[in-house]
Design a binder for these strands. Structure first.
Lengths: 207, 207
DNA sequence: TTGCTTTTGTGAAAAATATTGCAGTAATAA
DNA sequence: TTATTACTGCAATATTTTTCACAAAAGCAA
């Protein structure tokens, strides 16, 4: 395996699942886990787990397995989930509010530090100690707070407009919860929260 | 291509994306689309789009492309998104409430017809015309309303317990929004709403 | 009609991802 | 010390998914 190789997306996704399990194990005081243990728990093949760790350049020890703390440390580092990154949310409707309140994100590398909405009724109010700001302040807030990640929970009609603003403000990544496929320059990372796609798999498989 | 072949999951996911685009096209009065148009819009290869339609057994016409209405009809049928299925939600916290309010699900084949919570404060209150019920009624509600799909937005500590109840009530599919990997018998379909996995890909790709 | 163009449908090649199998290593027990 | 066991690490193989390439079909224009 070459050194400069990109880590496959399926591997990245699984690494985040391993992390969840590993945190549970650490809470229970478990020091080492084997690839078989992880695989059994997550319904995978142990070989796949080992291959994933190989991609992540994480080493284990024959007969012992992998050190739980080391695994957590390395996966966090790889996913850049060490030291939560400041993020902003645009669109403080019910979904936006729910996401701000979803404390678990803190564990997943992001912390909400700003919120925006264009409803004058909402501006000035707070959600979880975050003041909802007017969009006109977005550029300065992004700069002042060093925000790289934006979570997009606006109505779909304005999704592209807002995206263009975010791009102008040099945001690096957008997590898009709208059903619209937004357009960005190549250097901006976009990830769709694919509710529909998830549901498609679910409903297709029924029966 | 054999007839009894299972449709690959990536294809299912893309089909749901095509649908979104096709609905927009229909609204704009467009009658036919080519695989190239879809591909350009969604940043894919046109061959992939055609292959996907091949899996879905959807035919086009050379020089004309595909009929928008026919595509929508066939994809809806395939994903079983025609005639929304009744679904219930368990755990009416902020995320649960947001999901109930997310009207777009109606387009994606499910309609919330029941909600449950174990907080006595909440029971009897309504969210979007749905009365929050006590969990003791879950079995009869599932039977009476013919519910096959459950959306799980409970705290992670009780996720498995609630899942076991759902399985006993013969639910067919669970859409799991908790970070816990729940265990079910093979015939029950589970789909994780992988917030963490989605974020893993996002944060890894930054820079 | 004929020729030209666009677009489908699909087999086949290529690439990505998953699985298998096993040599080698470290811990443990005898 | 030696044998046994339980692992990893990785190369080889298999499978899945994507990409490519092009013949055939259908519309269109002259």
């Amino acid at each position: 395996m070459k050194n400069d190789e990109q880590i496959p997306e399926p591997t990245l996704r699984r690494l985040s699942s391993y992390l969840l399990y590993l945190l549970q194990m650490r809470d229970r005081g478990i020091i080492t886990v084997s690839s078989t243990m992880i695989a059994t728990e997550l319904y995978l093949e142990s070989g796949k787990v080992r291959k994933d760790f190989q991609y992540a350049k994480i080493k284990g020890r024959p007969k012992r397995g992998y050190d739980v703390n080391h695994l957590i440390f390395e996966i966090d580092k790889l996913l850049k989930w060490d030291g939560p990154k400041p993020a902003l949310i645009i669109g403080v409707g019910s979904l936006g509010t729910a996401l701000i309140g979803y404390g678990t994100f803190l564990r997943y590398g992001i912390r909400f530090v700003a919120a925006f909405d264009n409803d004058p009724e909402k501006i000035g109010h707070t959600v979880q100690d975050i003041v909802i700001e007017n969009l006109v302040h977005i550029k300065s807030t992004i700069q002042n707070k060093g925000i790289e990640i934006a979570v997009l929970t606006v109505p779909e009609e304005v999704a592209q407009n807002i995206t263009d603003i975010l791009v102008k403000c040099k945001i690096k990544a957008i997590w898009n919860f709208t059903p619209v496929r937004i357009k960005v320059p190549p250097k901006v990372v976009v990830e769709h929260a694919r509710f529909a796609q998830s549901l498609a798999v679910l409903t297709y498989k029924i029966d």
